[in-house]
Amino acid sequence: MLEIRNLHASINGKEILKGINLTVNDGEVHALMGQNGAGKSTLSNIIVGHPAYEVTTGEILFNGKDVLAMSPEERAHEGIFLSFQQPVEIPGVSMVNFMRAAVNAKRKYQGQEPMTAGDFLKLMREKRKLVELDSKLANRGVNEGFSGGEKKRNEIFQMAMLEPTFSILDETDSGLDVDALRIVAEGFNLLRTEKTSALVITHYQRLLDYLKPDIVHVLIDGRIVKTGTPELALEIENRGFDWIREEAGL
């Protein structure tokens, strides 16, 4: 599904990623761990086409298509979704209008007619339940006045609405209490199919307990230095990252 080859990238002239190689197959969940500043968020931003980052070499293929040649919205239409680490508040743009614009843009890309208002609201209601998002929130501006937990639930709600095939969860667990974490993780699990895959960026084992990744990667100084089974995440929880650094000779 997703294939990243020898990816180098920089921001404001500073090199952050120094040769990433990563392959995610259909149905797989990969966890990406690493200390602050290792380049995890840079990688996720590059996959979705954030204009602030510059790719110097390498390529990203999504179902065989060249991702780097696509606009951010095209990537979204192709099925790539990012659950943002810090979802932005957009006062004045209602969740309903925002979601309708997003859903209909994707439908247009796929050659489908826009959804009727009735069908759309029904879909909103149905998907909202998945993450127990209050209907009051749906009538507000996008993320406007949402608590940290509500913002993250709103990300998963949007994911449910847009049904991406490849999702990136960028520290979706940060700032969540245990109950909210469970709701978000269970919501995500309900959306999983054999055809969908995900890259989960996290510092903590707790989210991975719910999501049960197939593979765990460790990113240090812009390179994936270790890849292993879910047990690797447990070991990091107990021992930190230093031993991996030493092992890699960094």
Binding site: P72, E73, H77, F84, F98, A101, A102, A105, L162
Partner: peptide, 15 residues
């Protein structure tokens, strides 16, 4: 707001 613009584009809304 550039951040808001990007957020919307990530959801598939054209610029």
């Amino acid at each position: 707001n550039e951040q808001a613009l990007f957020y919307m584009r990530q959801r598939g809304i054209s610029e």
